[in-house]
Computed example of a mutant assay.
Amino acid sequence: MHAPALALGALFSATAAIAHLACIAIGAPAYRVMGAGERMARAAQAGRLQPALVTLAVAAMLSAWAGYAVSGAGVVGPWPFTRPALVLITVLYLARGLAFALLKPLFPGNSATFWWISSGLCLLIGLVHLYGLLAAP
């Protein structure tokens, strides 16, 4: 597989995971800055468990995706089903980046800034992964 692109994709996914964990640690102000919506921020501020659990699940998924990209880059040994997993991860990143207009009505509390920035980043990460997969021998 093409090591530099997939290593970069891993770095992007890991950074996104850390940003999500920071939201849990910082609380409501971080949810607001990240554009998660006032409902999520208020729930975190009230000490409800749901925002942390949802955010932790997203961080765990992003961490696993980073692990698969590192494996695909050859930085660590092979993980099970590395190539099919990377194809699926790439498709999901690209779909999330391109389909935000369809997803936006499902999460009305999220800010427009959230949708544009997160969708742009997902598209970028998906394209980096796609390049890494297509450049692979």
Rank of each mutant, 00 (worst) to 15 (best):
V75L: 15
I18F: 11
P84S: 08
L92E: 04
L86M: 15
E38R: 14
L49V: 14
R39V: 08
L21M: 14
A66V: 01
E38P: 10
R42M: 12
R96I: 08
L62A: 05
P51C: 03
V33C: 08
T90A: 14
A57R: 04
L86R: 01
L49E: 12
E38G: 14
R32T: 12
Y68F: 14
I89P: 00
T82Y: 00
V76A: 09
A41D: 00
H20W: 08
A59I: 04
A17S: 11
G37Y: 01
P80I: 11
G72T: 05
A14Q: 08
V75S: 09
C23E: 09
A64K: 02
W65C: 06
L49R: 15
A36Q: 06
G27M: 01
I18K: 12
A16E: 07
L94G: 01
A41G: 01
L94F: 04
E38N: 14
A60I: 13
R39N: 12
R48Y: 10
T90F: 05
T90Q: 03
G77I: 02
A28C: 10
P51N: 08
M40T: 12
V58Q: 06
A95Y: 13
L88Y: 05
P29L: 06
Y68H: 10
M40A: 09
M61V: 13
V33L: 15
S71D: 09
V70M: 13
A57T: 13
W65L: 02
G67T: 03
I26R: 07
A99C: 13
W79G: 00
L21V: 13
G47W: 04
M40L: 11
Y68N: 00
L21Y: 07
A22L: 15
